[in-house]
Simulated scan of single mutants.
Amino acid sequence: MPKSSFPLVFDGHNDMLLRLVGNEGADPVHDFMHGRANGHLDLPRMIEGGFGGGLFAVFVPSSGPRRSRNTQPSNSPQDEPLPPPLAQSEALPAVLAMIAILLRLERASNGRFRVCRSVADIRAAMADEAIAAVLHFEGAEAIDTDLHALDVFQQAGLRSIGPVWSRPTQYGHGVPFRYPSSPDTGDGLTQHGRAFVRACNERRIAIDLSHLNEKGFWDVARLSDAPLIASHSNAHAVCAHARNLTDDQMRAIRDSGGIAGLNFANCFLRPDARDMADTGVDVMLRHLDHMLEIMGPDHVGIGSDFDGALIPDAIGDGAGLPVLQAAMQAHGYDAKTLQSISQENWLRTLHATWGA
Results as ranks from 00 to 15, higher is better:
S5W: 02
V9D: 04
F10Y: 15
N14V: 10
L18Q: 10
G22F: 01
D27C: 13
F32M: 02
N38Q: 12
G39K: 03
L41F: 03
E48Y: 06
E48N: 03
E48W: 03
E48M: 08
G49K: 06
G50Q: 01
G53F: 15
G54R: 07
L55R: 04
F56S: 09
F56R: 02
P61M: 08
S63A: 00
S63T: 00
S63E: 00
G64M: 00
P65L: 00
R66D: 06
R67G: 08
R69M: 09
Q72H: 08
P73T: 09
S76A: 14
E80P: 06
L86R: 12
E90V: 13
A91P: 13
M98R: 05
I101N: 07
L102Y: 01
L105K: 03
R107S: 14
R107M: 13
F113A: 04
R114N: 07
C116E: 14
D121P: 14
R123K: 04
D128Q: 08
H136P: 06
E141C: 09
T145C: 00
F153G: 07
Q154S: 14
Q155N: 05
A156K: 04
S160P: 11
S160T: 08
S160R: 05
G162W: 01
P163D: 07
P163V: 09
Y171T: 05
P176D: 13
P180Y: 15
P183N: 09
D184H: 14
D187L: 13
L189E: 10
T190S: 15
T190P: 14
A199T: 03
N201E: 05
E202I: 05
R204G: 07
D208W: 07
L209R: 01
H211D: 12
L212P: 05
N213A: 04
E214A: 14
E214V: 11
F217Y: 02
A221I: 04
L228D: 00
A230R: 05
H232C: 10
H232S: 11
N234W: 14
H236L: 13
C239E: 12
N244L: 12
D248G: 03
S256R: 02
S256D: 00
G258V: 09
I259G: 01
N263C: 03
A265I: 03
N266L: 01
A273C: 15
R274T: 15
A277H: 00
T279K: 04
H287Q: 06
H290W: 11
M291C: 07
I294A: 03
G296R: 01
V300C: 06
P312F: 11
P312K: 02
A314V: 10
A314H: 03
G318V: 13
L324D: 10
G332T: 11
D334M: 04
K336Q: 14
L350V: 11
H351P: 01
H351M: 02
T353R: 01
